[in-house]
Amino acid sequence: MTPMCDDGFAHSLRTVDPARVPATRVTGRPVATQGPAGGAAVYEVATDAGTLTVALAAVDGRWVVTGNDFVRAVS
Rank of each mutant, 00 (worst) to 15 (best):
T53D: 06
C5R: 04
R72S: 01
D7H: 07
T33Q: 14
V65I: 15
V64R: 06
F9K: 02
D6C: 06
V59Y: 08
R25L: 00
N68Y: 06
M1R: 05
R62P: 10
P3Q: 05
C5W: 02
A73P: 03
A57P: 02
T66S: 09
A57W: 05
V21F: 03
A46D: 14
V42M: 09
Y43I: 15
V59Q: 11
Q34R: 13
P3R: 02
A32Q: 07
A73M: 00
V65N: 11
A73E: 06
T66A: 11
V54E: 10
T33I: 15
G8F: 11
P18E: 05
V42S: 15
A23Q: 09
R20H: 01
G61M: 02
S75A: 03
T2A: 07
H11V: 07
T33F: 03
R25N: 05
E44T: 14
Y43E: 12
A55H: 13
T15H: 09
T47I: 13
G28E: 13
G35S: 11
M4V: 12
M4W: 11
A73L: 02
A41L: 14
Q34V: 10
S75W: 00
G61Q: 10
V45R: 08
P36M: 03
A40W: 02
V54A: 09
R62N: 14
D60W: 05
S75D: 10
R25M: 05
V21D: 05
A57S: 08
V45T: 08
R25V: 07
V26K: 08
R62H: 15
G39P: 05
V42N: 11
P30A: 12
T2E: 10
V26C: 01
T15M: 10
P30R: 12
G8N: 12
V16Q: 02
R72F: 02
R72W: 04
T53H: 08
T47V: 11
T24Q: 06
G28C: 07
G35P: 04
M4L: 15
A10T: 10
